[in-house]
């Protein structure tokens, strides 16, 4: 987790056992309830906020299977709010 998500969770990294991205995110917001409105637009529908970016091993999940992307042991999932610079 990075930027505001890191500040809210007061940690940058958690270890989870999950079979997919959506399962990992569900576990994450269960562990840190304050992250739920930062990550999910509609939790019931499992719809992410528009600008939340999720990478799996450095690849944007939108170019994999989106929120349903399968995970395997050792995978690294990075979650960012929108950031920019130059």
């Amino acid at each position: 987790m990075f930027a505001t998500l890191q500040e809210i969770a007061r940690t940058s990294e958690v270890r989870l056992e999950a079979e997919s991205v959506v399962e990992a995110l569900e576990q994450l917001v269960t562990m840190h309830a304050k992250l739920l409105p930062e990550i999910f637009e509609d939790f019931e529908q499992r719809k992410l906020k528009q600008r939340v970016k999720v990478m799996v091993n450095g690849t944007d999940m939108d170019y994999l299977d989106g929120i349903r992307t399968k995970l395997k042991d050792g995978d690294r999932v990075a979650v960012f709010p929108v950031v920019a610079g130059g």
């Binding site: 990075f2 505001t4 600008r51 450095g58 920019a84 610079g85």
Partner: peptide, 26 residues
């Protein structure tokens, strides 16, 4: 806009907020 608004990522972390995201992207 979430990037440029008061309290947005640019005013909170500066341009250096990109270090982590670009590093994660390899």
């Amino acid at each position: 806009h979430a990037i440029t608004k008061p309290g947005g990522t640019l005013s909170s972390y500066g341009t250096d907020a990109l270090i982590n995201v670009i590093n994660e992207a390899g």
